[in-house]
Simulated assay, not measured.
Amino acid sequence: MASLVTEIPAASPADAAVHFARKLSLETDCWDVHASLKSGSPDFVLLDVRGPAAFAQGHVPGALNLPHGKITERRMMEWPEGTLFVVYCAGPHCNGADRAALRLARIGRPVKLMIGGVTGWIDEGFALDSGS
């Protein structure tokens, strides 16, 4: 009798490679964002898409506050075409980053979601900045 793990067969290695490559094209994690920011020359713009009060209480150092509801084509013209945006919100219990990513994609901007959000950042042991 198959276990709950194996009762549905694993994907072929080729299908798995396509799946995980696609997933990584849409997501990044807190560790990779931290390493990029620490390098001093990140090749993306980090957006905290929560409200200003939550941002002021604590945010990833170097992040800009742009609530997901305020992401518009006009607002994003501040950055050159092709700029990669990495978005995050409070954490896995919040869909603000998904909403922001959808808005950015719909206006033609490259975007990745930082999985884990603030919760993931703290879980990794990284410090937050506070203030506006």
Rank of each mutant, 00 (worst) to 15 (best):
E7A: 08
G116F: 02
E81W: 05
Q57E: 09
L46Y: 06
A101R: 05
S12A: 14
F20L: 13
H19F: 15
D98T: 06
H93M: 07
S25Y: 01
A53E: 15
R99C: 03
L37N: 14
M77D: 14
R75I: 12
N65W: 07
M77G: 13
D123S: 12
V60E: 04
H34Q: 15
D32C: 11
V33R: 06
E81P: 11
A10C: 07
E7G: 00
G69W: 04
L102Q: 07
L66I: 04
S39G: 14
D29C: 12
E81V: 14
K70C: 04
V87G: 02
W31F: 11
G62E: 06
N65K: 03
G82S: 13
P13H: 07
K112Y: 10
L128Q: 02
G58H: 00
R99I: 10
D98I: 05
G91I: 04
A101L: 05
G116W: 01
F55D: 01
A53C: 03
L26H: 12
G125L: 11
H93C: 05
I122W: 00
E27I: 03
M1Q: 08
W79F: 15
D129F: 07
T6L: 12
G82L: 15
V33S: 06
K38E: 15
S39W: 15
F55T: 00
S39R: 12
A100E: 00
R103L: 05
E7T: 04
E7S: 06
D48S: 04
P52H: 04
W121A: 01
H93W: 05
